[in-house]
Structure formats: structure tokens, C-alpha cells
């Protein structure tokens, strides 16, 4: 009986202890990311959105603390989802006050990760819930999932290499919700081959989009002018 009572008492204690551990883990990740004040990076961006057919684009990424991030196609044209600024974790981790909840452990590609949920304290914040999958040993986020009020759910998957010391990924896969593109009425007659069947409009309305950026090199903390983001 006593033993049972002890266990009952122990549950909330361990729960709080684990929540505290999670908060510490998040803080450690934040500290690591915090080492980077700004960077400029070269990458290749692959876009996978149903209504958008584009080639792999050579892009430059510019970041400046606290939350400025720009993905730019220096030469040609690229369509960059506005929510893609969130590929920078600063924007997830420094986005107002939140409480940290431990959601246990999981596995991503053979790596054991700690799952952490961030609940914003501001009820009116756009972000409703963020879930982070953190590698507790290397102190990097491998995956994150954010649910927002206005911009749907987006997901980040990251893999690390040379720049792991700064918490900067070599590859980011950004998944997001997108609405379909509609050609303005009366603009053009299409050329069809006659075999393509038209998908009903409602089926195409809410779709998942995916942007994959492979980053070759970073130039870290060498300073970046604000003018770049203008």
C-alpha cells in the first residue's frame, strides 16, 4: 500500500522532472543555434508543388538574427513559400513565450530522439503547437512540426553534416499546405493533348507542398547588411 502511494506521488514528480529536462534540452539547442548571428549560404532548391513545375534552382540563403531569412534565386526566378522563413529554427524557438512539454522518445532514421512539444502561452499567437524531435546527444533538431492558425501545418526535416557545431543543416525538407493556383479567367486557351483528364477542382484545393534545399556551404557570422532583406 505504502509502496503504491509512493509510486502515485512519484508520477507527478517525475513528470515535472521530465518537463524540466525537456526545457533544459530546448534551451541547450537554443544556445547552440544562438551562436549564429548571421549567415550566407549557397544551396540547391528543389520544389515539389502539384501546380508548380520548376527546375532545381540555385539559391542563396541569407539569415540575420533574430528572424530575418531570405531565400533568393540570384539569376533566375523562384517561387519561395512565404512560410519557408521557418526553416530557420530561431523562428520556431524564439517565437514568444511557450511552455515546454516532454512527449517521450521516438526514432528517426535509427537515431533515438526526444520529442518535445512547445505550447505558446499567448492564446492569440498564430502558432498553436510546435513539436520538435531533438537528438539529445548532438543537440540538434531533426524534425519539427508546427500547427498554425492561418498558415496550416508545416513540417521540417533536417540532416546535418559539416555545420552541426552551429546547428545548421546540410539539407532541409520543408513541407507545407498550399492552395491551388487558378489561372485568371479568360486569359488563354490551353493546348491539350486530349488525353489529360481534368481533376475536379475540390480535389486539388488543399495540397501538400514540399521544398527541399541542399546547402553546400555556409559563411557564418561574417556580417550581412539589412539591405539584402529589403
Amino acid at each position: 500500500m505504502k509502496k503504491k502511494l509512493f509510486i502515485l506521488l512519484l508520477i507527478p514528480v517525475s513528470f515535472f522532472a521530465r518537463a524540466q529536462d525537456a526545457a533544459i534540452l530546448v534551451q541547450k539547442v537554443k544556445d547552440k543555434i544562438g551562436l549564429v548571428n548571421n549567415y550566407e549560404a549557397n544551396g540547391k532548391m528543389k520544389t515539389n508543388i502539384a501546380f508548380l513545375k520548376v527546375p532545381v534552382a540555385t539559391v542563396k540563403l541569407y539569415f540575420k538574427k533574430p528572424d530575418q531569412l531570405l531565400i533568393k534565386n540570384e539569376k533566375g526566378i523562384s517561387f519561395v513559400p512565404k512560410t519557408a522563413v521557418n526553416i530557420n529554427l530561431n523562428n520556431v524557438l524564439n517565437n514568444g513565450k511557450y511552455s515546454v512539454l516532454d512527449a517521450g522518445a521516438d526514432k528517426i532514421g535509427g537515431t533515438v530522439v526526444t520529442v518535445v512539444k512547445l505550447l505558446p502561452e499567448d492564446d492569440n499567437a498564430d502558432v498553436v503547437l510546435s513539436t520538435l524531435y531533438i537528438d539529445p546527444l548532438k543537440l540538434v533538431v531533426l524534425k519539427s512540426k508546427t500547427t498554425t492558425r492561418d498558415n496550416g501545418t508545416y513540417e521540417l526535416e533536417m540532416s546535418y553534416g559539416k555545420y552541426i557545431a552551429y546547428g545548421l543543416p546540410d539539407k532541409v525538407i520543408f513541407s507545407f499546405n498550399t492552395k491551388d493556383y487558378k489561372l485568371p479567367k479568360g486569359v488563354t486557351f490551353d493546348f491539350e493533348d486530349g488525353s489529360t483528364k481534368k481533376t475536379p477542382a475540390e480535389k486539388r484545393n488543399n495540397q501538400k507542398g514540399k521544398v527541399e534545399i541542399a546547402i553546400g556551404s555556409y559563411t557564418i557570422n561574417k556580417g550581412i547588411s539589412d539591405a539584402v532583406f529589403k
Partner: peptide, 17 residues
Amino acid sequence: KNDLVVAKTSGLQLIES
């Protein structure tokens, strides 16, 4: 000169310049 974006009923596509 730049890339050409072609609008179709089914969506957009980009052709490199």
C-alpha cells in the same frame, strides 16, 4: 532575359532562360 513562367489552367511552370 530571364526564366519564362508559363501559366496554364492546371498550374504554372518555369522554363529556364
